[in-house]
Design a protein around this nucleic acid. Structure first.
Lengths: 253, 253
DNA sequence: TTAGTTCAATTGTCTGACATTTGCAACATC
DNA sequence: GATGTTGCAAATGTCAGACAATTGAACTAA
């Protein structure tokens, strides 16, 4: 195996084991390695990437803990089925966001999950949000607002999408419930997918911003029903952008 | 440090690293090691448990990946804050079930989460459940029914609680959504807590069984509203058993 | 005071060896 | 031929010892 990527001990903030985990995760998430496939043995990975077997084991141990691969003495390391992947972990969702093909089945499930839960989360947030939570939402919203015109250009797009993610994260955290706070990780790949997939016009983006503003205001005013509706509308538009729903969802009273 | 538990290479199905991870997890989850505390250095753990440093590192790597500890070169290994723990992971929730004090704050959040979501999950399950899903629910229910009388005795209690867990798991899985399927892991510590905490009479247990039966029937009949109500009632009783709610929740029409 | 230096402690990495597990093939036995 | 046994090769698991890199604190000098 000839690898295009060098793993360096000094030229990276990450440890060697972590770098190899990134490389292997890329292969798994972009489909080069499918569930059931067997990875090269540790010794081969070590010589191939020119690192020690200890570092290889560190990487594989990490991926095993995250449910992505399974290791058995004497047999080797095999890629696990999707359902075994711990994709509510922050590292895994980051890998999905970075490497996964946009049509990964998980992402449709994530959208359905958001449709079911986010209106309730928004509603719950109206009852729990502190000043600090509102500030986090407002900060994120302001960055979105300041960058929406430049969403088309690739450089600024990341700035906008990070703010979009931060906005929704802030709502999850405003529930002050540890379970919702964990689930927040799935937002990153989910929202990045929308932005990569959809090709919204300037007018549509302005409307999207307005929907976010309404949700934020509803939470600020502790208006539970309004927050529920506002969250539903944002997701309805998201579903339309992803091609999951027919109507843009702006027709309700 | 003198350890009461031996770590053996042969007398256990688990690898040495995994055994040490269990030991350290016990210390963390029962409160002997609090967030912010520093663990002994790797070399000390190695001599203390009489295993190699490689195995110690394997254990610590696992706990780091699960968000329970953080390691920094030169500084050592410290216990992370609760919110960093990846308690939607199966291993972590198992540790919570096995070692955590029943008053762990997370468990209250888990209960709130269940109250918000399980009626919706039950409702969704009515639309998705396959024959195989119904079978899994029925199998679990039958085991509960066969063991409810013996719930009091400690030996049989585990049999009942495992069936209880399996019953609720089956409903989550019946959504055929990967996200809900991941979240299923929090059920084990949550349900074990109820069984450990509450001291139900035989009559109350019979009523609990009846509530479960109604939920199962509602899902079988694809009656979305009935499933929603049935799930709500089970949780209402659960909240009462845990001391979170006032009324047993059987008064609705 | 402040900036730089040294130093001890700890995790990160490397190397090489051996132990254990696993599946399979060859073989022996009935 | 069917079946049980043995031996072997491949892979992960564990061990031991050494060195590298990182960090923070104590120390020193301008």
């Amino acid at each position: 195996m000839n690898n295009s990527v060098e793993i360096s001990k000094t030229n990276s903030s990450k440890a060697v084991g972590g770098q190899l985990a990134d490389e292997l995760a890329k292969l798994v998430f972009d489909g080069s390695l499918a569930p059931g496939d067997t990875l090269p043995p540790e010794t081969e990975l070590a010589t191939s990437y020119q690192i020690s077997r200890a570092s290889v084991r560190s990487a594989l141990q990490m991926m095993e803990t995250l449910g992505i691969v399974a290791r058995r003495a004497g047999r080797g390391t095999t890629v696990q089925e999707f359902r075994e992947w711990n994709f509510l972990d922050g590292q895994v969702s980051q890998w999905i966001a970075d490497y996964a093909a946009p049509n990964l089945g998980v992402l449709r499930d994530v959208f359905e999950f958001r449709c079911t839960t986010e209106p309730l989360i928004a509603s719950l947030a109206t009852k729990r949000a502190t000043a600090r939570d509102l500030l986090a939402m407002e900060d994120a919203f302001n960055i979105m607002e300041a960058n929406w015109e430049r969403r088309a250009s690739l450089g600024e797009r990341e700035c906008f999408s990070n703010a979009d993610i931060a906005f929704h994260e802030a709502i999850y955290r405003a529930t002050h419930n540890l379970v919702w706070a964990q689930i927040v990780h799935i937002l990153r790949p989910a929202i990045l997918l929308v932005i990569k997939t959809s090709n919204e016009t300037a007018e549509e983006l302005r409307e999207s911003l307005e929907r976010h503003r309404r949700l934020m205001e509803a939470i600020r005013m502790r208006d539970s029903e309004a927050a529920y509706v506002a969250a539903t509308r944002i997701l309805s538009q998201t579903g339309y952008d992803l091609g999951f729903e027919e109507t843009p969802g702006e027709k309700e009273t």
